[in-house]
Design a binder for these strands. Structure first.
Lengths: 220, 220, 220, 220
DNA sequence: AATGAATGAGGGTTCATTCAT
DNA sequence: CATGAATGAACCCTCATTCAT
């Protein structure tokens, strides 16, 4: 009996969250009106406030859920001898994240354009999550350089670029009808690891600066 | 006389645009109030409407300026025999764009988070610009593959990733006090062209899929 | 069976009335929420509406009870030869009223500040009761003047003042922990009958107007 | 020029205050809607908020004005030898207060029924003012007793009764078309000082308790 | 051209009341 | 009878826009 009620309550909440997520994603937090949300959820105005104390909180709830789930799916690469090859680990984790992210497009819209958020504070929560991932990448690069797996490079910049390429790819995949996630992940990894040049062509070294000669060395 | 008036009018307009750009960037379109804009511009409420028919239009004007300037700076790479080496061309154009972008941070904030825009329509204008750049990259890749300079790859995805890595880098550079633009540009290009791996390590081929073997071929 | 049911129903109703009375008194009609009332009564929202058609009516019920009880306790002074001395009658009736009023403080709060009521109409019901008492006092004064017990005076004004002094006293007593009602009543009567001056001091007459001389005579 | 603007602004504000005072007095704070206030003031919704930050503040402004003015008019009685006779001083001050109070009936309604206020806090401000006056009366009584002008009595109770009689009188006067304030004040003072009995009748002493004998002595 | 007081549509939120279970 | 989730009218307040001066 009580169980049933809890279930109903949960369903109702989900119904509202789903509607809100859509509306927030489509119009941004500020253009999203409660009127629109309840219209899509097919509920009355008061009902919304039975499940969320206010608009802001509804947004935060959605954000918290998403960031939590994502944090869970982003895994650190183990370089222990008995661990699977790094590239495979990378692939598994990436597929995991992409799958989640592509399943809930409104939500992804929200995260990718964190200007859609209510204010600086919410924006910072998203930014903080991204920073977290970025710094994970950064320390992986560092580690990789020390182990001789990664070529020397300015880690913060490259981590930012690398992370940006994931965001860019996600944006792209979002518009595909039936994205083949494992394959796309693989290609993305190839890009990140090996770049786009045919190995034997172009200049031989890592860099040929516009002002004549490698500049990599001075980069901190 | 008429000239002087026109000049005054232009100055006044610039003064408002500058204030508006700041405010929009700091608070996002919706949280930006006319009150705040006119306060910073040091003008009266009515004066604002003497120069812009409405808030939305002021935003659009800023956007149009910025996108115009950027479009001008983004140049196509020439592969003609007599042209400078592609990598140098790339570098020049990138430095150009980055310089502009890093000089006007409020504006860049605006462009990077296009959720800060008034509505879906404005968002789409930004998105359209980005799409434009992305497809320039895409066709460059295509061309490069045909000429044997670029390894075969799914161009749309890689273009998206590549473009994403630029956005990511810009985000990063934005927080540096005195970014060394030419060097950063060089490193960014290195990343995009050659990736991060040490060439001789890892698996030899372009790709070693997690499920065993190259998968690149089926990508459309 | 039916009897038992009726009794249960009555108890339930009382339980709600008690809660409502408290809440109304503490927060005023408008700040009193049904939520608060049912929380204190320990019943469900719907149950409230099983006993009262609406919030307003619940308030009215409380008011009706109180005014009924008070009306019962306010007795007319008999000047018949065989009746007890008027002052004793006055005292008895006053003690009666004060006792009731001091026993149910929430209710008294409600009556004293009849701005706490739902609207002008309810306010008028309270006012009507007060008017009723006031006019009883007024006619007593009238009668007393004719019998030579009371000095000539403008009865409506003095009745209002007299009644006001009772209200004022009640307000005062309300904040005493253990008011000695009979004694307080006695003092109050003394004040009303004899005023505060030491009889032999001040000017000899009833009145020494600020503009020189008695003014009582012109009062209608 | 600037002067003119300030004047216009002041007039506008007064116009709103006047409307608000009426509405608050008639319907109480909570039933008073901004809609009603602006309708009576003949202004637009936004205009109201140009002069007051919110409904509550508008109420407070009215209250502050009124209490300030009243405080100014309530004067302490001087018993110095060269001062005018106490009764005359009393009369002057009372006429002053009554005149103000009767001139602005909505305001008086508001003060008399301080349940009409927004909440406990506002209610307490009114109550505090009343307390202030009451304690002035109380200490005057005290003083008067020591000087042998006032008969011994329990000052707090009598002060409360006395103050109540003023409130009661004001309520009464409020419903008169053209109250003769000086005369009414005089009668009110007579009542307060000498009570209502004909001096030679009734029991001789100050008090004849219902339970036999004076009780005044024990009163603290 | 410049001003800033005035406007009013529209937003978020509350809470008395209803009704299916 | 009792319950409490659902309802929606009505409220306060904001802010882009207008217009008389």
């Amino acid at each position: 009996m009580d169980d049933r009620a809890a279930r109903l309550r949960h369903d109702r909440r989900l119904q509202i969250v789903e509607a809100a997520k859509q509306v927030f994603a489509e119009m941004g937090y500020h253009n999203a009106s409660i009127s629109e949300i309840i219209a899509r959820a097919g509920i009355a105005r008061g009902t919304f406030y039975l499940y969320f104390p206010n608009k802001r909180n509804a947004f935060d709830a959605i954000l918290t859920d998403a960031l939590g789930e994502l944090t869970r799916r982003v895994r650190v690469i183990s370089l222990a001898p008995e661990a699977p090859p790094p590239r495979r680990q990378l692939h598994t984790s990436l597929v995991d994240v992409l799958t989640y992210v592509l399943e809930d497009r409104p939500l992804t819209q929200l995260l990718l354009n964190h200007g859609l958020t209510p204010d600086a504070e919410a924006s910072e929560r998203v930014e903080a999550f991204f920073s977290h991932v970025r710094s994970m990448i950064e320390s992986s690069l560092h580690h990789g350089i020390q182990m001789g797996l990664i070529r020397p490079c300015p880690c913060p910049l490259v981590a930012a670029a690398l992370f940006g390429s994931i965001r860019g790819s996600v944006r792209y995949m979002l518009q595909l009808e039936h994205p083949d996630v494992p394959e796309l992940a693989d290609e993305l990894i190839s890009f990140a690891l090996e770049g786009v040049v045919k190995p034997d062509r172009w200049s031989g070294g890592y860099s040929t600066s516009a002002h004549g000669g490698p500049v990599t060395k001075q980069v901190r």
